[in-house]
Amino acid sequence: MDGVSSTEIALMFAVGTGAILLLVTAIVLFVVFYQKKMLQEQIHRQELETAYQRKMLLATLESQENERSRISKELHDGVGVMIQSVLTNVQALGDRVEADVRHDITEAVTHTHQTLREISFDLMPASLERFGLIHALKELCTRLGKRGSVRLVYTGDDSLSDVSGEQQVLLYRIAQEAVNNAWRHSQATEITVEVSQSQGQLTLRVSDNGRGIPPEVQKQSSGLGLFNLRTRAEVLGATLEFTHLQPSGTGVHVQLATHG
């Protein structure tokens, strides 16, 4: 065989084929690991994007709350004082105006003042900034309880720890939205608001004895009210659950991890 033995040929083929197979293995491993790396980078990018979106949402909500607070104070301390002064002037008119007319004007101005105070409170309760979430929720229950036939009750802790001002505002908005939803749509006769804190977990529960939210509405979350609840819970980093209560009613359950 011209000086080349079978063993040498076999060795030559073995080396050549082995080298190519090694190259193939390297290519396959490269593809698998590179794809894995690409996937990890993609997940990392998505996480960054989600965090950025959350930050943007938080900034939007913060500026919204600041604006609400500003308008609320403007209404309460500016326009409210002016209306109060109009009322004083009307009462000071005395006999110069007929009693019926004075009474009508006084009633209209008082009604306007009351409405203004309610709008101001809905925009941003002063008690939330001054005394915190619990006080504001109690005030919400009292105020809404006076407006109609629905009984509103606050049950739960009297103080909170390790909950920042921003978190308290977001929790208040969730409770306010849930109470308003129950108030407007559930035909409930009683709404209960409860805040409790134990073992580093804060729980906010708003429950009513109304007709409940149909499951398809819960899933769609097309309503602005439910969307707002979900968005705020997401920004807060809290879990939000809707439960159907027995015999009737809905429970909105928010759970937030705190360090207290």
Binding site: F13, G16, T17, I20, L21, L23, V24, I27, V28
Partner: peptide, 9 residues
């Protein structure tokens, strides 16, 4: 890839 590139030689 294994079969054909291996057999190329």
């Amino acid at each position: 890839m294994v079969y054909f590139s291996g057999n190329l030689i």
